[in-house]
Design a protein around this nucleic acid. Structure first.
Length: 810
DNA sequence: TTCTGTACGTA
DNA sequence: CGTACGTACAGAAA
């Protein structure tokens, strides 16, 4: 074999048949062989962990490119050179005839197989070069940049070992995706009679109506019922009516499994087709319970747990006409099979977890119904008031626009354009550039000029004569607010809806977005000043968790032997208040017991009140202390802390990083175990690698063992616990029979309406106030045990006519 | 028309 | 190097 050593390493004493392919050499200097230095090191670890090293014989290594291109990027080479290298590589494959191929890295996949997105197709086996089983995975250098990928690469390598042991052929699936009328009727009838568990998946058109539905009844078989074909319907009118009638019965009575179905499919079936599907399981929610840090898509689930080839590229191609349209129906069938197979594999993973994890999964399935109810029901929107506000803000922008034009002398400056703003600041005004760090694809970070809000505030602070800076900053914010308001589309019934994803975040918080039909809002990031536009169905009840995150921080500290923070919270003084008291009345007070500090609270409140009048909201000593205590709890650096205070006070409160550090030291003097908590996280990371929340959810931390991961760990349990407590309230409000109207059991007395992490919003009629009080107090009870410490996170509930004006104490 | 980067809203 | 998100706009790529 006469290939240069920098192109191919071939084992001298026996080969196991596996060829591992990379893109380019290690660097300019280390070009003698493929995979050198640390790349070889991490590759060896992956091979060892997957036990490929335990197989007979060694692996062969190759690179597409035998030279190191500028910055390691192959597109910096002449096309002729790339062509020659690729030709030589193909020749090499033909000659050594590998039995298995592992392709590592984006560039490698792109140049060998035109893979546009490695992340998408990674981990799914396919046949290459005359049917050689092949898997794409990450290159060691990519893992080095994003260490969490390591665990995924391990799974890819383990899959390759399995293939090396027993070979690979794509499983034969039996998908009837162009069924006859009789076939559909007989299958649906059969499902109905046996009440068979089914996995279901729908495809929808741009109007959100179903194009087809897939129903899978065992791990390799599915039937797909098409409804829409290009330019028409699949069935004639009579047939279609019969199919829908039977299908609705099946969906409402058979136990259904789906993926993201408790949100997406449920919404479409309920709203567009008036069918209430009986989803009792969801692969995505199960996947979240097992590996909440990992990506959430069926493609990823397939790549992680299953041996199927990749199929998720088919849908787009079928719709764009690149493939026959019926491929969409087959695709739908594949999705249902993937969903069922995934569920079976994930169920096995649950056995490795405490039983509480599965309980939490079931809990989430239950609560998902509450979220669906809230999102689909939505809230009343005050369109008239909104229009008035838009007009008001429009005037404001016009005026500011004029002022800016005069001050800046630039008639056409668009403050919404980052490009134009940067040119204006640093070329026209010649101000000293401010930068933000930007990570590049090759892993280097680059400093890039920025014109964000913080930058404008800083420049305005440095150059007080340049009034146009502040003006531009404020103008841009008004534009943001204006665009949010003016893009709201309201349903015909005057309401705005939304959509939740109960497993939308790694910490277990729900994420939210605009509803699928676009008639609504993102309910979790509405501007405080515009919350009065969202009206209660009579009354709006707003229930906030009091000191939400702090309770869990306090519990962790108490578990480590310091109950100061817990006592403070129980006594009714918040850590930020104590910090403020110490800063106002003497730093020696920082060690005083909670009940003595209580006496200073009235005086502190007086100061805050005065400052609020003289400086405006968000600019008081308490606001500074809140930022300081929050930052200290989560390992924030002084610079970021200072920046946050600067931003929140609209550039008016400037404290130095040293002052911030001083406050942190004061804070740590009272809560001395805070530092130890960080150390404890490091040791937990080493000993277990995960954190268990009281809800039952376990989060594995796949990142590097560094400060970054420690900070993620510090925020995990506080977020997970506040989420659990909030969801517990929602679940009880939804399912407790005592919260239903006696005249109409389908209607709530206290109706769940929205959730913003530590805030729960509820609708009620003023006449029901006493009942609501009783129901709420019953449903909001909770008890958390964190690291052996028992505590309750209390709610503070207020109500009023709308979201923004809920000030009356419940 | 679709994708990416920047900026900014929430807890 | 706080954590966790989603959306709008500009401007480039397709």
């Amino acid at each position: 074999m006469n290939y240069p050593a920098n192109k191919l390493y071939f084992p001298k004493f026996g080969w196991n048949g596996l060829l591992i392919v990379g893109d380019v050499p290690y660097d300019e200097k280390s070009v003698a062989a493929p995979f050198m230095q640390s790349h070889l090191g991490s590759l060896q670890i992956l091979l060892k962990k997957s036990d490929i090293l335990g197989l007979k014989g060694d692996c062969a290594f190759a690179n597409i490119c035998s030279q190191f291109p500028y910055k390691g990027l192959m597109n910096n080479l002449d096309q002729s050179i790339i062509d020659a290298e690729l030709a030589q590589f193909n020749e090499l494959i033909n000659e050594i005839k590998p039995r298995f191929v592992l392709v590592l890295g984006r560039q490698t996949a792109r140049y060998l197989f035109k893979t546009s997105d490695l992340e998408e197709e990674r981990g799914a086996p396919f046949h290459s070069y005359n049917s050689i089983p092949t898997i794409l995975s990450f290159h060691p250098k990519e893992i080095f940049r994003q260490y969490e990928m390591n665990i995924v690469a391990q799974s890819d390598f383990a899959k390759m070992r399995k293939i090396m042991m027993s070979g690979w052929e794509p499983a034969k699936w039996n998908i009837n995706y162009q069924p006859t009328f009789q076939e559909v009727l007989s299958m649906l009838t059969k499902f109905l009679e046996s009440k068979a568990p089914l996995s279901a998946d729908i495809e929808t058109g741009s109007d959100l109506r179903m194009t087809c539905i897939g129903l899978c009844y065992n791990t390799t078989s599915a039937i797909v019922i098409p409804f829409r074909i290009p330019g028409g319907r699949y069935w004639n009118e009579v047939e279609e009516r019969a199919v829908w009638r039977l299908l609705a019965k099946v969906l409402e009575t058979c136990p259904l499994l789906g993926q993201n179905s408790v949100h997406f499919d449920h919404f479409v079936l309920c709203i567009m087709h008036k069918i209430a599907p009986n989803f009792i399981g969801d692969t995505m929610l199960a996947h979240h319970e097992v590996y909440c840090e990992m990506p959430k898509s069926l493609g990823f689930i397939n790549s992680l747990y299953l041996m199927n080839p990749y199929w998720k590229d088919v849908l787009r191609e079928a719709r764009s006409g690149k493939r026959p349209y019926v491929d969409e129906f087959e695709y739908c069938g594949k999705d249902t099979i993937g969903t069922l197979q995934g569920a079976i594999e994930i169920k096995k993973e649950f056995k490795e977890l405490p039983p509480k994890a599965y309980e939490h999964y079931k809990f989430n399935i239950r609560v998902s119904r509450t979220f669906q109810y809230m999102g689909m029901n939505g809230v009343l929107f005050d369109t008239a008031k909104c229009n008035a506000r838009i007009k008001e803000l429009d005037e404001e922008t016009k005026q500011r626009e004029l002022e800016l034009r005069v001050l800046a002398g630039k008639p056409n400056l668009n403050v919404k354009s980052p490009k134009q703003m940067i040119k204006w600041l640093y070329e026209d005004l010649k101000l000293p550039p401010k930068y933000i760090e930007k990570k590049q694809e090759n892993g280097d970070s680059e400093m890039r000029e920025t014109s964000d809000y913080l930058t404008l505030l800083r420049l305005a602070h440095e150059f007080p004569d340049r009034k146009e800076l502040m003006l531009a900053a404020k103008l841009r914010k008004v534009y943001k607010r204006l665009s949010t308001l003016s893009t709201i589309r309201v349903r015909p019934d005057g309401r705005v809806g939304y959509a939740f994803n109960i497993v939308g975040t790694v910490t277990g918080r729900a994420s939210a977005k605009k509803p699928l039909d676009k008639f609504g809002i993102q309910p979790q990031n509405q501007d405080r000043r515009d919350r009065d536009l969202f009206l209660g169905d009579d009354q709006w009840l707003k229930a906030d968790l009091e000191g939400a995150d702090a309770w869990t921080v306090a519990a962790m500290l108490e578990a480590m032997g310091d109950s100061t923070m817990m006592l403070d919270l129980k006594t009714g003084v918040k850590p930020a208040q104590i910090l403020a008291i110490a800063q106002c009345f003497g730093s020696n007070l920082i060690t005083l017991p909670a009940h003595e500090l209580l006496e200073y609270k009235p005086r502190l409140k007086e100061i805050i009140k005065q400052e609020e009048v003289s400086r405006g909201p968000g600019k008081t000593i308490y606001d500074i202390c809140k930022a300081e205590s929050h930052g200290s709890n989560y390992g924030m650096g002084p610079q970021t802390g200072v920046d946050n205070i600067f931003i929140r006070s609209e550039g008016e409160l400037y404290i130095t990083p040293a002052q911030f550090k001083q406050a942190q030291l004061l804070y740590e003097k009272r809560y001395s175990k805070l530092i130890k908590l960080q150390e404890k996280m490091v040791s937990l990371l080493n000993s277990h690698g995960y954190l268990d929340a009281y809800s039952g959810n376990r989060r594995y931390f796949f990142g590097r063992r560094d400060n970054n991961t420690v900070r993620e760990m510090l925020s995990q349990l506080p977020q997970a616990h506040t989420t659990y407590v909030t969801n517990l309230l929602l679940e009880r409000l939804y399912y407790w029979p005592g919260n239903r109207q006696s005249t109409n059991r389908r209607k709530f007395i206290a109706a769940p309406a929205n959730q913003v992490h530590d805030e729960t919003d509820i609708m009620f009629k003023l006449g029901d106030l006493d009942q609501v009080r009783e129901i709420f107090n019953k449903c909001c009870k909770n008890e958390i045990v964190c690291w052996g410490i028992k505590y309750t996170i209390p709610f503070e509930a207020n109500y009023g006519p709308n979201w923004g004006d809920a000030h009356e104490e419940l």
